[in-house]
Simulated assay, not measured.
Amino acid sequence: MAKSLGFVFPLSLAPRGLPSRPMAYASPVIALALTLAFGALLFVLLGKDPMAALKVFLVDPVKDKRALGEVLLKTVPLVLCALGLSVCYRANVWNIGAEGQLILGGIFAAATVLWFDVPGHQASATSGTAVLVLASLAGIAGGMLWAGITALLRDRFNANEILVSLMLTYIAQQLILYVVNGPLKDPQGMNFPQSKVFSSEFLLPNLMSGSRLHAGFVVMLVLVAVMTVFLFRSFAGYRLQVGGTAPSAARYAGFSARASLWMALLISGGFAGLAGAFEVVGPIGQLLPSISPGYGFTAIIVAFVGRLHPVGAVFGGIVMSLFYIGGEMAQSRLGLPSAIGWVFQGMLLFFLLACDSLIDHRLRWRAAAVR
């Protein structure tokens, strides 16, 4: 079983007694250092001062309260999606469609808010809170529904969940274009593809004055703690991981590999859907075709940078958020292309996979030499 875990997730899920465990957590640090080093070299090749450019990426996004709030704001959808993906990958279920599940969550949440946000109706604070709760639950349901399609096709027809979940993302992108140009379109929106702007009582309250950081950040932290207990201190979490990574051992122990598949995908879809709901009732305040700049895909990197651990996902989310905002600042202040942030994300993933592979290869070579 340990061998299969190491093969599916190099080093990241190694049992506690193996010597590879310290290196598993050193790998993201090494990968981040290499990313910054090669990023500095890239800035030199582009004719920019590397130290000033790295300052724009790493220091300026957190230089004041408002900037720090923006960094933490972007961690909310990244970490929520990464939490669900970590569950999937630990269960050996390769969900690549968190982006589509996030979009469906946003659609369901927006439809719920618009159902209650009718002209002439002034909701009280209590009813506004109730609508936010309903919108969040609707977002979770939407994400679970979209992930459930992948689970059904994998369970019933043995379809490849990588392809199915990825293709469903493109369907979700077309679906949101349809609803913002059709059923949920703002009739007073001058023909723009968008819903009406939600009333203020149906938006998540801010946590810090002068910033857009909302209460969803607190919910995210609570869910990080819940998932840490679920994965590492509960029998259900243990059963889910064994059912996915060692089906034969699971059958011998009376666990169900099918149950692991469904549970992993539904949990992942629910978290991604909640991320979409928080986007539309949070910083955006309405349904737009571009509710996500690719959070669901970036969350894959966040999950692996965090070693498929809920707490690690928070640190990975902060790093990716810095790259998002740093890329935007580099575009406006240094005149660099907007894709520079994606370049940094790609380099981090490349170096992380390289470090994992090289370290794993070295440890296997040493183990073979000992034998």
Rank of each mutant, 00 (worst) to 15 (best):
S199R: 09
G17Q: 10
L175T: 13
S165E: 06
M51Q: 15
P19D: 08
A330D: 03
Y238I: 14
F116V: 08
L349G: 02
R233E: 07
V242Y: 10
L145K: 02
F108W: 07
L34N: 00
I149F: 08
L13M: 05
A275R: 03
F108Y: 09
S357I: 05
T298M: 02
A277W: 00
G335Y: 03
I162T: 13
S292P: 04
L54Q: 09
S165K: 01
L54M: 15
Q101K: 04
K55G: 11
V222L: 15
A303K: 00
F232T: 14
M320D: 01
A40M: 13
G270H: 09
A259C: 09
G105I: 15
A253W: 04
F235I: 11
G142V: 08
K3P: 06
L358A: 15
Q331D: 08
A159W: 01
I318W: 07
T169M: 01
L45W: 10
F304Y: 14
G326C: 13
S338I: 11
R66N: 14
A236F: 14
V62H: 14
K55F: 10
G346I: 02
A330P: 04
A82P: 00
N158D: 14
L358D: 10
N158E: 12
A225F: 07
T75R: 00
G335R: 11
N206C: 01
G148Y: 11
V311A: 15
Y295I: 03
L166C: 07
I176M: 07
P28Q: 07
W94K: 05
R364F: 06
L177M: 05
S12D: 10
L349C: 00
R333M: 15
A151Q: 01
L42G: 12
F108G: 00
R371G: 14
G100V: 06
P77W: 04
L11I: 03
G105A: 04
A40V: 03
G39L: 06
C88Q: 05
S124I: 01
G282M: 03
F217M: 09
P61E: 07
I171C: 08
K55T: 12
G120H: 06
P77E: 07
V302D: 00
L11E: 09
A138D: 01
K185N: 02
G39T: 04
G306I: 04
F7M: 12
R366D: 08
P247V: 08
K196C: 10
I162H: 11
M208D: 01
G128C: 00
R233P: 08
S248D: 05
N92H: 09
R212E: 07
A2R: 14
A98E: 08
V219F: 13
R364Q: 14
G269D: 10
L85Q: 04
F350C: 00
S195Q: 09
S209Y: 13
F255T: 01
L207I: 13
A125R: 15
T75D: 00
A354R: 01
L322F: 10
G282H: 09
Y324H: 12
L85D: 03
V226N: 13
S20M: 11
S292W: 05
G282A: 15
M23A: 10
L68N: 02
I301R: 00
V370S: 09
Y295S: 04
S268K: 02
M227N: 08
R16K: 03
K55H: 09
